[in-house]
């Protein structure tokens, strides 16, 4: 099938890319735009590793036709820290809590969790985290440290602690 021009925005940057109609958004991100943070896991909506945000909502890029995001705003894990000087508080918290083991689910988890923290400003509860991340599977961690990290990041964002003080 003839490739068609697709225009959309990725992490705030406008992109134009030629895609074949049967390509998914995930395939275009990974194989055309080299944004390989979003992972290709089950490729059919059962694992959540491919989660990106489309117009701010976490969605499955493996089940999204690339041509259907014409004119839309896509956020991937690569753009998550942009407004925070490199690392989003969630990424810092995942690091502090050692919440990534093999790391394959981490980008999808971050994109679902960021949406939760944006929807519910202020500290979130452990059960809110469980509900919001219920479409993201993790095989390594038993989820415990991920929940710890997301709750911690929500508290940090509500009332930033000075870690310099804490370190002394």
């Amino acid at each position: 099938m003839t490739a068609r021009l697709l225009r959309f925005s990725v992490n705030g940057e406008p992109v134009t890319v030629a895609v074949e109609p049967q390509r998914t958004l995930l395939e275009v991100l990974r194989y055309e735009l080299d944004l390989i943070g979003s992972k290709q896991g089950c490729d059919k909506g059962d694992c959540g590793a491919c989660t990106v945000q489309i117009d701010g909502l976490p969605r499955l890029s493996c089940l999204t036709l690339a041509l259907a995001v014409e004119g839309r705003d896509i956020q991937t894990v690569e753009g998550l820290g942009r407004a925070h000087g490199g690392c989003h508080p969630l990424q810092d918290a995942m690091d502090r809590w050692d919440a990534a083991q093999c790391g394959f689910c981490t980008p999808g988890i971050l994109m679902s969790a960021e949406s939760l923290l944006r929807r519910s400003p202020g500290p979130v509860t452990r059960s809110e985290v469980r509900e919001a991340l219920a479409g993201n599977l993790c095989r390594c961690t038993g989820y415990t440290k991920i929940i710890d990290a997301v709750v911690d990041a929500s508290e940090q964002m509500a009332a930033p602690r000075d870690e310099t003080e804490a370190a002394q």
């Binding site: 050692d98 919440a99 083991q101 095989r139 390594c140 961690t141 038993g142 989820y143 415990t144 440290k145």
Partner: peptide, 14 residues
């Protein structure tokens, strides 16, 4: 300690 805990939690999960 955190990594050891993570291994223990992951083991319980599995």
């Amino acid at each position: 300690r955190r990594i050891v805990e993570g291994q223990m939690e992951g083991s319980v999960y599995m």
